[in-house]
Write a protein that binds this DNA or RNA. Structure first.
Length: 362
DNA sequence: AAAGACGGCAACCGCACACTT
DNA sequence: AAAGTGTGCGGTTGCCGTCTT
């Protein structure tokens, strides 16, 4: 929090103003004139400031942030107070790294909403827009550096869609067995783009599903080893720091008997749902009105097209009962697809970057 | 062991919108 | 209706710790 070495908490904000040389405007004379507006402090917050702000909110509630300075004497602007409160002092904030479930949800939310961090945060109780934004930007930077497509691949949506069906009996349009021929291209494309290594591929879902039907042993064996176990090769290095994620996503450790809790944002079915939760997003990956930010493509790339087809984006949707019946068959085909035809990874010239086999990319 | 690169995070800035006067 | 004010949001920057070479 107070990371600035010279900004250790002191007894009063006034002292902070004098002591903290970073980022705030100082009077040329070092003195405050009577008529001049109060010089507001910038930079890291101190424990004393936090206490003042919390005390203020306790007594006056949230809002009217510009009054905080007047009422408490805190040398912070209203915007700074609001930011501090919402991002750090607010109760029920969830700290720590994002869980795989949350990461998947963020991926889906970003695909639907674009850079609408606040709206995404509304679907992730305890998480702030700033937190999500930082997470996404970091992830984006990492993938760009690795020469990989920034946007989450369709295979993530496929996984979500399938997982929902497993857990929630959500039978919105699924790829039919016939359409699954497109999944082969999808899986190959996603893998060749590096996503198979950074994301749990549909195989992970297959494990989850089979576990829920008490048929896990063979499938788990099928899933081993993970896409790559050590970041020794040059193209794998960008994912070295995702090792923890792999441990979670492709975990060989004791696995929860249930699928990941993807209930965030799908309110009605989540036990103890947060009352502040917004109405659920449509869980269906089917076409909808999508807010596309400037940095997103409006037209899917070839692999994404295959995925869109596979996800029911353009094909005829099966009736619900057929969806349920075809799930088993679909998974078998998924297994065959992945087992028979492991996607080849082709490092682009230069070594670190990977390219789409089918061209396109971003 | 040291230096550089990178990741994570907190915070600020500017803009836009909503509400009030 | 217009101006002023408060608030929310997204983009960006800077710092520090960790990792890699």
């Amino acid at each position: 929090m107070e990371k600035s070495p010279g900004a250790a908490p002191t007894s009063s904000p006034e002292e902070e103003v004098a002591a903290d040389g970073r980022g705030h405007v100082e009077d040329a004379t070092g003195q405050k004139e009577q008529a001049t507006p109060v010089v507001l402090k910038k930079g890291p917050w101190t424990a004393a400031e936090d206490a003042m702000l919390m005390d203020h909110v306790r007594h006056h509630g949230e809002g009217n942030w510009n009054a905080v300075q007047r009422v408490t004497g805190l040398l912070r602007c209203g915007k700074s107070c609001r930011l501090r409160w919402t991002n750090h002092l607010r109760p029920n904030l969830k700290k720590g790294s994002f869980s795989p479930d949350e990461e998947l949800l963020i991926a889906q939310l970003h695909a639907q909403l674009g850079n609408k961090w606040a709206r995404m945060a509304a679907h992730l109780p305890g998480r702030t827009d700033n937190e999500i934004k930082n997470y996404w930007n970091t992830r984006t930077k990492r993938r760009q550096r690795a020469g990989l497509p920034v946007h989450p691949p369709p295979e993530v949506q496929l996984q979500l869609a399938l997982a929902r069906r497993c857990r929630y009996d959500d039978f919105s349009p699924l790829p039919s067995p016939q359409e699954l021929s497109g999944v082969q291209a999808l899986v190959g494309a996603a893998a060749s783009a590096g996503y198979a290594s950074s994301r749990p591929a549909p195989l992970d879902l297959a494990r989850q599903l089979t576990q829920t039907t008490n048929q896990q042993t063979e499938t788990v064996q099928f899933l081993s080893p993970p896409p790559f176990s050590a970041p020794s090769s040059p193209w794998a290095r960008p994912f070295a720091r995702n090792a923890q994620y792999f441990q979670l996503a492709h975990s060989s450790s004791p696995v929860s008997p249930t699928t990941p809790d993807l209930s965030l944002g799908y309110g009605a079915r989540s036990a103890g749902a947060d009352q502040s939760r917004l109405p659920p997003l449509s869980p269906s990956p089917c076409p909808r009105v999508v807010e596309l930010p400037s940095n997103q493509y409006a037209q899917p790339t070839p692999p994404a097209s295959a995925a869109a087809t596979a996800l029911g984006g353009g094909g005829a949707a099966l009736p619900d009962h057929q969806n349920a019946a075809s799930l088993e068959k679909m998974l078998r085909e998924l297994h065959d697809v992945i087992k028979v035809d492991p996607p080849a990874l082709v490092p682009a010239s230069g070594g670190a970057a990977l390219e789409w086999h089918g061209g396109g990319g971003e």
